[in-house]
Every structure is written in structure tokens, then in C-alpha cells.
Computed example of a mutant assay.
Amino acid sequence: MSSQSEATALRAGAVVAALTGLSVAGPMLGLPASWLALISAGGLAALTLDAASFSGMGGHILAEALPGGQQRLWRIAAHEAGHVLMAQAETIPVSQVLVGSLACVRAGLTSRGATAFSVPDHAKLPLEELRRWSRVLQAGMVAEELLLGEAWGGRDDRHLLGRLWGLSGHDVDTARREQRLARREVTRRLRSDPDALKQQARQLLDQAPRLFRGGAS
């Protein structure tokens, strides 16, 4: 089960548990049965609407639209900006950049941000190609660290990078050493021009759509 599927299942379970608790405690609190029925129906309807219309991402979409949501989007924009700049440096074409849950849902993704490029699908990549992808895939996490002090995203990047190295035939020690070297190189490059990183992140942030507000679609 994916992390998003797990989160959706947890939300559904939480809603059902809350409604069950309310049905038990409601009469003791003096709540009319009609209120309990209305609240239960509303909770289940909201959960169904979220799953049907927003792929279970409705909570994230709403949070990004509320006060404070700009900071959530800024972190995502910083992450994707790192990928974009490093892909440009490595001459790897970027086909799409999405910032925010709403942009991702519109594109059919259950994610909060994404940078799309064509990852080689053959099993074994030359060492230099692995080094290039190690830099590009770790650039998002490094960008977050440089602009925000720590990285929250990057789970999918680490998974893909691990898969590429796992298919390469290189031993684990080599893979870890090369990834550490790549991360240091990415840090050096992005740190050398912080204004370019901030500018790219701001550009992506400005293009990010938000609920109740216009933006790129």
C-alpha cells in the first residue's frame, strides 16, 4: 500500500471512529438524534467527496488555501526548484513541474509536488549516469535544507534513487559512497548561487494554483 493510500485509510478510519464515538456520547451530552444523524451524514459525505473529487488530497488542498498555506507551498516550491536547477545543469529535460496538492490532483497525481523527467528504464546505467541522477534526485532535499534549514520531502526521490542503484549491480558501499559524494556536490553548486535557487522557487510558487485563488493549471 502506498503512503497516500495509507493516509486515506487512516482518515477514513478516524472519521468512522469519531462518528461512532459521537453516536455513543451524543445522547449523554443531550444532543438530539436529528443532529447526530446530520453530523454523521455530513462527515461521510465530505469523506466521499474528498475521495471522489480530490483523490483523498482534499485536506492538503484546503490547508494550502488557508492562512499559513503559503509556507507549505514555499517548502514544496523550494524542493522542486532544486530538481529543476540541477536537471538544467545536468542537461536532463524537465517535462513538467507541479507545486501543491491542487496542481498534482489536476494532473492525476496523489502528491504535493512533482518534477517530471524521463528516468532511464533499462536495468544497468553507466556509473557516470548514476552519478548524474544521484545529483538530480537529491537536489530537492538539498534545496529544502539550504532555504528552510531541513528537508521534509524526498521520500519518493530516495526510493527511485535506491532502485536505480539496486539495478546497477554495484555493491551497497559503492552506492552509498557515490550518493554522499553527489549530495556534497549538489550542496556546493546550489550554495554557490542562492539567488538563482530562491528566484526559481519564487517563480514556481507564483505559478502554483490554490483553492479559491487563480494560478497555473
Rank of each mutant, 00 (worst) to 15 (best):
R176K: 15
W133F: 14
D157F: 06
G26H: 04
V119F: 07
E64L: 12
G154K: 08
T8V: 15
L44R: 02
L22H: 04
G162C: 08
Q96F: 06
A116G: 01
A37P: 02
T115G: 07
L102D: 02
Q203E: 15
R106C: 04
A18L: 14
S111F: 10
A65T: 08
R210Y: 01
V136C: 08
Q96M: 14
L148E: 10
P209D: 03
S40M: 00
A208C: 10
V15T: 14
S34G: 03
S111W: 12
R189H: 06
A216W: 05
D157E: 15
S34R: 13
A12F: 06
H122E: 11
H79E: 09
V94K: 02
L190T: 00
S101C: 10
T48I: 09
A78H: 03
G149R: 09
L197K: 02
L47T: 08
R180G: 15
G113Y: 09
H159V: 15
S134E: 13
Q138D: 13
G108D: 09
L125S: 07
P32F: 02
S40R: 01
S134R: 07
A208K: 03
E178S: 12
G166W: 05
G69M: 09
G82M: 05
L211I: 12
S168G: 14
G59T: 14
A63Y: 03
E144V: 07
L167I: 04
M57D: 10
L148C: 12
A12M: 08
E128M: 02
V84R: 02
L125D: 07
I76K: 06
L204R: 11
S168M: 12
S217I: 11
T110P: 06
A151T: 05
M1A: 12
P120I: 01
L66S: 05
S217N: 11
M86D: 05
W152Y: 08
S2A: 11
V136H: 02
I39L: 09
P194A: 01
V15R: 04
Q200M: 14
A18W: 10
G153P: 00
L19S: 02
A17I: 00
G30E: 10
R112A: 11
W35P: 01
R11C: 05
D50T: 13
E178Y: 09
P32I: 04
L181C: 08
A107C: 03
R112E: 15
M86T: 13
E6V: 12
D157L: 06
Q88F: 03
K124R: 14
A196Q: 06
L127V: 13
G169C: 03
Q203F: 06
E185I: 00
